[in-house]
Design a binder for these strands. Structure first.
Lengths: 115, 115
DNA sequence: CCAATATTCAACCCTTTGGGTGAATAAAAT
DNA sequence: ATTTTATTCACCCAAAGGGTTGAATATTGG
């Protein structure tokens, strides 16, 4: 049976957070504009402020954004660092892939040697 | 207002497909073992065959796996190509980020020149 | 103190998702 | 021809997602 490591949970959160187009758009805006208030972010969407607030919370849980609260205004800023976890996952997959192809290759070479 | 491009839909599918740990485990197995039958994949999980079959369908929709049907057996194989879309998205974000930092930097430099 | 502003909390609605079971289909084996 | 094997289809269910509205909270401005 396959068990899931705890680090996988972070990756799941990040991928799920990134899988929604509204949240990706939010991230893009933040990356372009730097720290931005929730209200100003929401102004760009045809969505209630509440909805945008929830999306931000989800990005925050995945640590893709950070919040700096100054009085009543919450400044949200992007944090791209966690995306490296995706990269790691992908690179790991690729290396496993390459490993298998190497084995296949040496098998074929052996057969050729046997000729 | 922000509108969403059609290519974004592919990216959403890929990220959502990848966001589930069972599906990532399936991908890993496929990358390790090469083309594998649905039943053999399912044997590694404490899940019904049906459930695994559904996960595979989702991966297939995201084009992260391919299916080759030979008689009654369906051989599933990994296809890592779509993950490059994630990479592209990320690199795009980073370049936007760098652009903004450059602008900030030149602003600060200007101010220094004014001294 | 009072009004306006910025944001979240709480409740509610659909729709989607991830799981299950049992039947259907199709191919292989006996 | 019948049974076994491989897989999906059709439902069902509980939980999670993404959206809404209205109230609550907290801070700022007059």
């Amino acid at each position: 049976m396959v068990e899931y490591k705890d680090t996988d949970e972070d990756l799941s959160l990040i991928l799920k957070a990134a899988s929604d187009p509204t949240r990706r758009a939010l991230l893009t805006m933040l990356v372009q504009q730097g720290p931005t208030r929730v209200t100003d972010l929401a102004a760009n969407f045809d969505l209630s402020l509440n909805s945008v607030s929830k999306h931000i919370r989800i990005l925050e849980t995945a640590k893709l954004v950070e919040r700096k609260t100054i009085g009543r205004t919450h400044l949200i800023s992007a944090n791209l660092a966690p995306i490296n976890l995706i990269d790691q996952w992908f690179n790991n997959l690729r290396s496993i892939w390459d490993l298998r192809l190497d084995k296949l290759d040496s098998l074929l070479t052996k057969e050729t040697d046997d000729d």
